[in-house]
């Protein structure tokens, strides 16, 4: 993203964001509520409500600003939503098969790993608990095998046991079981609590405050600073 300015319903939410995620890298995005974290993800993916006023979004060397949401997905982006909507009558299995366009063997294996077999024949997100919704999202993401995954608040509403499953799934999606040189999938993980960092290694962390990235660095250092001094300090830290 280069100098990205984005409006939502006439309000400028992103005010000149610069962010580069290299191939095989996992970045973490921190920020207080309303800072623009979700807007950043939605803009990258091309959701229509998020209007790019200026700046560029580049993916695999191409300016994708003019591409539709589904075109960007087919180019290799993917997302696990924080709060996915209910889609009555559409089963998780059906969508997962449409995403992967492969036989059912992979789906069966992934669903077993995610402890999500019982969700496959249910309507999408209908009555799913917080943990089930996350597992369903990660199952879909894993079936898509994206080159760049946006993962929005993977630990929200999830109990500790499920966070471990979620962490394993993210590592599988990102090929973290391989040595770094062999990894090609990248990710941007939005997190509030950072619990997920106990399970997933990230190379770089960023702090988004009021529509701007005000700090970047080692995610654990950033987390420690935020825990001790709050997000306000990040702005001060940058200004210093």
């Amino acid at each position: 993203m280069k100098d990205l300015v984005v409006e939502v319903n006439g309000n400028t939410v992103l005010k000149g964001v610069n962010l580069k995620i290299g191939q095989g890298e996992t970045h973490v995005l921190f920020g207080p509520n309303g800072s623009g974290k979700t807007t950043l993800i939605m803009s990258a993916l091309g959701f229509p409500k998020y209007r790019v006023v200026s700046g560029q979004i580049l993916f695999k060397g191409k300016d994708i600003s003019g591409m539709s949401l589904d075109q960007r997905i087919r180019l290799g982006m993917g997302i696990a939503f924080q709060r996915p909507p209910v889609v009555p009558g559409v089963k998780l299995r059906q969508l997962a098969e449409m995403i992967a366009r492969t036989d059912g063997a992979k789906l069966q294996r992934v669903a077993e790993d995610l402890n999500a077999l019982h969700l496959l024949d249910r309507d999408l997100n209908d009555g799913f608990s917080g943990g089930e919704a996350k597992r369903s999202e990660l199952l879909q993401l894993q079936m898509a095998s994206p080159d760049l995954a946006f993962i929005d608040e993977p630990e929200s509403g999830v109990d500790l046991e499920s966070i471990a499953i979620v962490g394993r799934a993210i590592n599988a999606i990102l090929g973290k079981t391989r040595v770094k040189a062999g990894r090609t999938a990248s990710a941007l993980i939005v997190t509030h609590t950072a619990h997920i960092l106990d399970y997933v290694n990230a190379e770089l962390g960023h702090v988004l405050v009021d529509g701007r990235i005000v700090c970047s660095g080692n995610p654990r250092d950033i987390l420690r600073e935020v825990r001790e001094h709050g997000f306000k300090h990040c702005e001060v830290c940058t200004n210093e």
Binding site: L69, D70, I73, F81, P85, V86, V87, P88, G89, Q140
Partner: peptide, 24 residues
């Protein structure tokens, strides 16, 4: 929101609408 959700899985808008209608 459901249409966009399915598009975020790579379905075109028409495919998403057809899938949701079918489900309904």
């Amino acid at each position: 929101e459901a249409i966009l959700y399915l598009m975020a899985r790579g379905l075109t808008e028409d495919e998403a609408v057809a899938t949701i209608t079918r489900g309904f």
